[in-house]
Amino acid sequence: MKTLVNHKSVFVALLGSMLLILSCHKPPHTVAESAAPPPPQKVTIIEREGRIRNFPCSECHKKVAPETMSKDGTKKHTDIVLKHFPGMNKCQLCHDPYNMDQLKRITLEPVSFNTSQEICGQCHGEKKRDWDMGAHGKIVGGWMGVAQKISCVGCHNPHTPGRPKMQAMAAPPFPAGGIPKGDHP
């Protein structure tokens, strides 16, 4: 018993001295209390006009009289398939036949292609609100300072807005020691 106590006291003394040596450390990576907060995220919406094929559309459309266009307008734009919801078959719901370089609301006010989310927001109000706050859609470029928000049509083709199915990338390999609990039904 006696020897044990002796050992212990020696050990404690040793630890104590080490503690003294070590006790003046500073924590790593400590943020100064007075430091200014990081610059807030400044989000701009990615513009579309430069990304649309054949823009400006008026190059052609100033020669195409709205009155002469076919009902569904797909004679020339054969690649456009309108599969949005049953019954949506009129291009002019969103496009302005008198000025193809812009879109128009159902109430006929013009809307630029750069703010086409306003068109979608007419019917998808809730999604538009989510997108405004950042809960739907995507912001790229970083979390502080300048960043860009992808507009609705950056992810959804306005004519066939449903998102295609994707092929899942490779699954993790089965663990050699069997499937851990919680990884399989």
């Binding site: 994707m166 092929q167 899942a168 699954a171 089965f174 990884d183 399989h184």
Partner: peptide, 11 residues
């Protein structure tokens, strides 16, 4: 615990 982490194919 009932999830499947090893699914494959179209999603």
């Amino acid at each position: 615990e009932e999830g499947d982490a090893y699914y494959e194919g179209e999603v």
